[in-house]
Simulated scan of single mutants.
Amino acid sequence: MYMSVVSTLLSRNSVKFVKGPAPKQADLEQILQAAMVAPDHGRLRPWRFKLIRDESVQALGELAIRTAEADGKPLTDQKAASVRMWLKNVPLLVAVACQIDHSDEKIPESERLLATGAGVMNILNAAHALGYGAYWSTGLGTYSHTVPEELGFDELDYRFMGFVALGTLPERVPTKERPSFEEFVSEWKPGSDL
């Protein structure tokens, strides 16, 4: 069993161009439940998710395009067309936000953000394990004021963290070459300079 879990983790890829259908309800519930087991200092459970389905996905894309223009950063016609082309086949987006509880300053905001990010990673892994494609995007107006607020995530109480596209895998998913962990790991010993 352990080898199959590790093999699943090592074979995960982000798949932007998912298509319908969305995960079946029972599978979606498992995918979202996987977020609930993320490490979470203080059991704050800061993650918040909002499901955006079917026609609402395209409406969100149009909102993001209008927001970019209103913010003085209009998308080129080519970029707007690219956003529309991507979203026309996406059956489900999961909006991701981290709730900031101002009444509990003992646990830093960074730890809440890490817990939410870990929850999203669990969503990505669970989707992959169940045979679906998933992609975490920080586009679509993630860093605007308008898009998060339209979704009910005001900037006083939340840090908006993007969207996870979930759906069926395309016919071909290219494999990605991954670096060796050895490039990023060193060992510390007392008295060493590093």
Rank of each mutant, 00 (worst) to 15 (best):
P39W: 00
G162P: 05
F49E: 08
P74V: 06
R43P: 00
Y158K: 05
D77S: 14
L60A: 06
A126R: 15
E55G: 08
R48W: 03
L93S: 08
R178Y: 00
I65Q: 04
P46H: 05
A115D: 04
L169W: 01
D77T: 14
S7K: 14
P46K: 07
I52V: 15
V6T: 11
V164S: 04
S137I: 05
A81D: 15
W136R: 11
H145Y: 04
H41C: 11
A22S: 13
A127F: 07
A64M: 02
V185K: 09
T116H: 05
D71S: 11
A68C: 13
Y135Q: 05
P170T: 01
D54M: 08
D71K: 14
Q99K: 14
L44G: 13
R48T: 09
E149A: 15
A59H: 09
D101S: 13
P74W: 03
D193P: 11
A118W: 01
G162C: 05
L87V: 12
K79G: 01
P91H: 05
V18H: 05
K16I: 03
L194Q: 06
L10I: 09
V18F: 02
E109F: 04
L140S: 04
L75I: 12
A81R: 06
D71G: 09
P74G: 02
A34M: 10
G139L: 12
L130K: 14
R112C: 12
E62T: 10
L87Q: 10
N122R: 12
D71R: 13
N13E: 02
S180H: 13
R45A: 09
L113G: 05
G162Y: 03
W136F: 07
P39Q: 03
E149G: 10
V57D: 04
A26H: 13
W86H: 08
S4E: 08
P190T: 04
S103Q: 14
W47G: 11
L9S: 05
N122P: 15
G191I: 07
P148W: 01
C98I: 05
K88F: 03
R66L: 09
S137P: 03
H145V: 07
V173I: 08
D193V: 12
R12K: 09
L75D: 07
E182F: 12
V94Y: 03
T168D: 02
L130E: 01
S186A: 10
L194I: 12
M3S: 14
Q30M: 12
R66K: 14
M3E: 10
R53D: 00
S180I: 01
T175D: 04
D193G: 15
A129E: 04
L9W: 02
E155K: 15
A26V: 12
D157A: 14
E55C: 02
I107H: 04
K50M: 09
R53K: 11
W86T: 13
R66W: 01
V94P: 11
E149C: 14
A81H: 07
P170E: 00
K176Y: 00
L140P: 11
Q33M: 10
I31Q: 11
A95H: 04
Q78V: 13
Q30L: 15
S192M: 10
K189H: 08
G167D: 04
G133I: 06
H145C: 00
T116W: 01
P91N: 08
T142K: 14
V83K: 01
S180Y: 03
C98H: 02
A64Q: 02
L60H: 06
M3R: 15
P174R: 03
N89S: 14
A22F: 02
G119Q: 04
R66G: 06
K50E: 03
V185D: 02
V173T: 07
E177T: 14
S4P: 04
